[in-house]
Amino acid sequence: MNKLFVESSPHIRSAWTTQKIMLNVIIALCPALVMSTYIFGIKALLLTVICCTSCVLFEFAFNKITKREDTISDLSAVVTGMLLAFNLPVDLPVYMAIIGCFVAIVIVKCLFGGIGQNFANPAITARIVLMMSFAGAMTKWTAPFAWKEGVDATVSATPLAAETLPSMTDMFLGFRAGCLGETCIAALLLGGLYLMFIGLIRPATPLCFIGTVAVLSFFYGGCDVNFMLYQLMSGGLILGAFFMATDYATTPLTTKGKIIFGVGCGLITFAIRQYASMPEGVSFSILVMNCLTPLIDRFTAPKALGTVKPKKEGKQ
């Protein structure tokens, strides 16, 4: 066996353990969870709990079967479960959500070697697999506050495809149809800013991601600020930019790389939203850029202190 273990980067000794980082991400996601429970009813909370539990169970079972070290105590499976649930419509059948958890944890994360080794964001990939598999159920949006009226499934379109738009304040507070956790912009911003404030995520990626979509939508909509704001607040842009495009294992390490990553995500999101047959492109953009991350890292690797850039070697 290999006796030299190299853990995933960064190799800096600090008080931050994986468990502590993940706990803080969970804290940052809590405001959005509370708001989504308020908007979509207790079902939203239940679906999140189911996703978290099944993610943890899948990870536990996989590590047990393959006789690997048990990693559920680092809480990363809980974060994956929460993020996945946030990307699902609230009325999704439970078995579909559990299939999503299986894809996220077993296929995307554990088969590639567990935490820090996966090349793509588990929650995003699971969402895309579900989207491709159950297109009908994954785009059946429940109208906000349907639970108060006792109606079981009031279906309405996502604002990206709807004809009448909710008001700007409703958009900001999340009183609109959409995935469970992506609607309340205020709560997501609160969580994202918290993570930035304690230094867990760097602002480069989210700013470039959201900025690129903002600039492109502004000019695409004919210099219309309203159109731009709707584009920013609808879909999963804020959730994706702050919580998924900042994942350590699947995004570039350097600031330059993070900027390229963010701009790339923004470009792809804009292109899919405006020119493709799907209304939303945030998850695809992050997955595509995840795949490009090793390349970006290679081209933005900082040169070691005191060295000269090697000249291109001629053909031998």
């Binding site: 078995y95 299939i99 491709m132 598999s133 159950f134 009908g136």
Partner: peptide, 13 residues
């Protein structure tokens, strides 16, 4: 109505 096949298996992925 309740059990839907996973369309992704018919797709290239």
């Amino acid at each position: 109505e309740a059990i839907k096949p996973m369309t992704i298996f018919v797709l290239p992925a």
